[in-house]
């Protein structure tokens, strides 16, 4: 069963690298922010899979909850800054 979770994790890693294309080459700042938010979601699941493989999921679950929280606050802060950028 560990091999199955490991293969799911490797698939998520490949998806993160595909989404990284949108972060590097995406036209404009908004595409980049959307792609970073999507990468954050994949990282959340990858942390949980890591916890399952290491048999320490009660430790990794707190880390992933904090990661989801900071991802949300980060996206809100960046979108607020971009919305207010032009007008003083």
């Amino acid at each position: 069963m560990d091999g199955f979770f490991l293969s799911i994790g490797v698939g998520l890693c490949i998806l993160v690298f595909l989404a990284l294309y949108r972060v590097v080459f995406g036209p404009g700042i908004f595409n980049r922010v959307a792609a970073v938010s999507a990468i954050g979601n994949k990282t959340l699941i990858m942390l949980l899979i890591m916890g399952v493989i290491y048999k320490r999921i009660e430790m990794f679950i707190d880390i992933s909850l904090v990661y989801a929280l900071l991802n949300f606050i980060c996206t809100l802060a960046i979108s607020k800054y971009l919305e207010m950028e032009g007008d003083k």
Binding site: N41, S64, L65, A68, F72, T75, L76, S79, L82
Partner: peptide, 25 residues
């Protein structure tokens, strides 16, 4: 985590898309 994601993710998407619309995309 599931409940939190279902509150937070649509809100973040709404905020960033609204900022994009305001900035004239």
């Amino acid at each position: 985590i599931a409940v939190f994601m279902f509150w937070a993710q649509p809100t973040a998407t709404h905020a960033i898309s609204r900022a994009g619309l305001r900035r004239g995309i």
